[in-house]
């Protein structure tokens, strides 16, 4: 921070770092926000500190994610059937059915979600029944135990509890699974019909996926083109041309696209003279979408996104939404 600047507005400017760390509250915070709005030095300073703070997470010592975390997290997020989660769901619904013993094991878990602790223990019971680290974190829990009982007694109680819990969970899981099987059967029929209909699309998607599997390691961005909207549209977009040893990749991103009706789709075209080459089709979610297209090389004059009546055109039939000139 510059000296003159600091003197001029001594108080607010000197607190910018506290503000960046989220340490100003109430009136102080409001005053700072008003100040920042009118002080470009502080805005710059804030951006610098925020970048610095953005690096702090990287400094955390590496910790090994729990086994199966990827499947659980992605399963939950993408709504895929997932064994561990089923178990946990079942445990959640089953609270009244669990034997009292199971509760004994967690009465002292000071506020931690008991069901999750149970699920956690079940999960971990084969690998590491009771880690030392677990215990040191809960001094209150230890204080309740008689010193002599600390070792084996507690372990046994936990083990019995966990087993009883596991048994109850298994029963419930069986029930839940039976129900799911039913609905999955129905779902299956519907899906296989859909699948048949979309085999063609799928083939080309797989092909595209295969090509985009890896980030473009060692690739060079040869061009970045800003796509301009036509007429009064507010759409925005960018096209990147990336060259690597697999060829030239066109990456098109667009947002604020107009809404699609019926069968409509957006198609991307590479244009040389008056000859367009189809570079992909996309249906945006909300108003944004992206397409990746790999081709052997060669020069094109223009890249354009058109609004098409459906997704299957080999030539542009609709009108241009976004376009940009490529350097040849």
């Amino acid at each position: 921070m510059r000296e003159g600047h600091e003197e001029e507005n001594r108080k607010p400017c000197s607190d910018i770092d506290l503000y960046a760390m989220g340490l100003l509250e109430g009136e102080e915070r409001e005053r700072m926000e008003r100040h920042i709005a009118g002080c470009s030095d502080c805005r710059e300073e804030l951006a610098r500190i925020e970048e610095l703070l953005g690096l702090l997470p990287l400094a955390a010592e590496p910790a090994e994610p729990p086994q199966g975390m990827r499947e659980r997290v992605l399963g939950q997020v993408l709504g895929r059937p997932q064994a561990d989660r089923l178990e946990e769901d079942a445990a959640e619904r089953s609270e009244p059915a669990l034997p009292p013993d199971v509760f004994a094991l967690r009465q002292d878990e000071d506020g931690t979600d008991a069901r999750q602790q149970l699920a956690d223990r079940n999960e971990r019971s084969s690998a590491a029944p009771l880690s030392g680290a677990d215990r040191t974190e809960r001094p209150a829990e230890r204080a309740k135990e008689a010193p002599a009982a600390e070792g084996t007694g507690r372990s046994r109680r936990l083990a019995v509890g966990a087993l009883a819990g596991a048994a109850a969970v298994m029963l419930l899981v069986t029930g839940v699974l039976a129900q799911r099987m039913d609905s999955l059967g129905r779902e299956n029929k519907r899906l296989s019909a859909e699948l048949q209909a979309s085999t063609q699309t799928l083939d080309s998607t797989i092909e595209q996926l295969r090509k985009t599997e890896q980030p473009f390691a060692g690739a060079m961005v040869s061009q970045i083109v800003s796509l301009k909207p036509v007429k009064d549209l507010v759409a925005r977009g960018q096209a990147y041309l990336v060259v690597d040893d697999r060829g030239t990749h066109l990456i098109v991103q667009a947002s604020r696209l107009p809404e699609l009706k019926d069968e409509q789709a957006f198609q991307v075209w590479l244009i040389k003279g008056d000859k367009p080459v189809n570079a992909g089709t996309f249906m945006p979610t909300g108003n944004a979408g992206a397409v990746t297209f790999t081709f052997p090389g060669g020069s094109y004059d223009q890249v354009a996104i058109t609004l098409e009546p459906d997704a299957f055109g080999q030539e542009p039939r609709g009108s241009i939404v976004l376009a940009g000139a490529l350097k040849t």
């Binding site: 910790a63 729990p66 997290v73």
Partner: peptide, 28 residues
């Protein structure tokens, strides 16, 4: 991001179950 994120969150909460939940919540 799995590893750096998990490491970072675990660094703060010091609880593997909670760290996983927070990461899940974030991806959701």
């Amino acid at each position: 991001y799995e590893k750096p994120l998990y490491s970072f969150v675990y660094r703060i909460v010091k609880d593997s179950m909670a760290a996983e939940e927070i990461v899940q919540e974030l991806f959701l």
